[in-house]
């Protein structure tokens, strides 16, 4: 079993215009920097990107917005990005906004083979438009469908050659669920180790979910709100 590829360019082989992608990260924390750079270089366009946020103007998914490669974003929060705002107001970009927990659970459901589930989030709001509402034990819930993707791009701290992954800090966020919901899941890691080098007790994402893995390089890990104690 050989899941290891040399770099991000090899890892995105088969990526085509019009595909649906998942990209891990919360803000700029835990985003697949190397894969985003490779997608940018590939020129693939008309992409649907499922990601909690849309990066900032000159980093993260903001780079793919600048290059006009994204047709639609599926996110929970898209502030901090002037180009995003411009494209949205000009009608050049489609956006589906979802409650953050609903987004996370729709992705989890996609990976777990559960086509839909009921959640209380969004009942009585715009999010409920066109969705089934049903009562359980006197409370109302919305029916939400799973999300799956042609490619899921995740970022982990350490990974092994069998695709087992460990995340670090709050860089975990959406990465574990997205890893389960891609037809092809690509993991980029800061450190790639031989199978057997990770403690199985500490593995967050079992390798079964990962089709391709590589050790990334030149991680910038930009901080959005550098806040220090005075």
């Amino acid at each position: 079993m050989n899941k290891v590829v040399a770099n991000a360019t090899e890892a995105i082989a088969g990526l085509q215009s019009g595909m649906t992608l998942m990209l891990g990260g919360f803000g700029l924390c835990g985003i697949p920097e190397n894969c985003i750079a490779a997608i940018l270089a590939s020129g693939a366009s008309q992409l649907t990107c499922i990601s909690n946020n849309a990066g900032v103007d000159d980093f993260g998914l903001g780079l793919l917005l600048q290059s006009r490669q994204i047709k639609k974003m599926v996110s929970s929060y898209v502030g901090e990005n002037a180009e995003f705002e411009r494209q949205l107001l000009a009608g050049e970009l489609e956006v589906e906004l979802l409650p953050q927990g609903t987004l996370a659970e729709r992705i989890r459901a996609g990976g777990a083979g559960i086509p839909a589930f009921y959640t209380p989030a969004g009942v009585g709001t715009e999010v409920a438009q066109g969705k089934e509402v049903r009562e359980f034990d006197g409370q109302m819930y919305l029916l939400e469908a799973w999300l799956r993707a042609d490619f899921a791009f995740v970022k982990a701290w350490r990974g092994d050659t069998l695709g087992n992954l460990m995340y670090r800090g709050t860089a975990r966020n959406f990465n574990p669920m997205m890893a389960t919901a891609g037809r092809i899941t690509v993991a980029e890691v800061e450190e790639l180790v031989p199978a057997g080098a990770l403690d199985p007790n500490q593995v967050h994402t079992p390798g079964i979910y990962v089709q391709r893995i590589f050790q990334g390089s030149h991680y910038e890990k930009r901080i959005e709100q550098r806040t220090v104690r005075k």
Binding site: S75, S76, Y77, V78, P99, Q100, T102, A121
Partner: peptide, 8 residues
Amino acid sequence: KGMGGAMD
């Protein structure tokens, strides 16, 4: 900008 986690 979106609802983030507020609705949940």
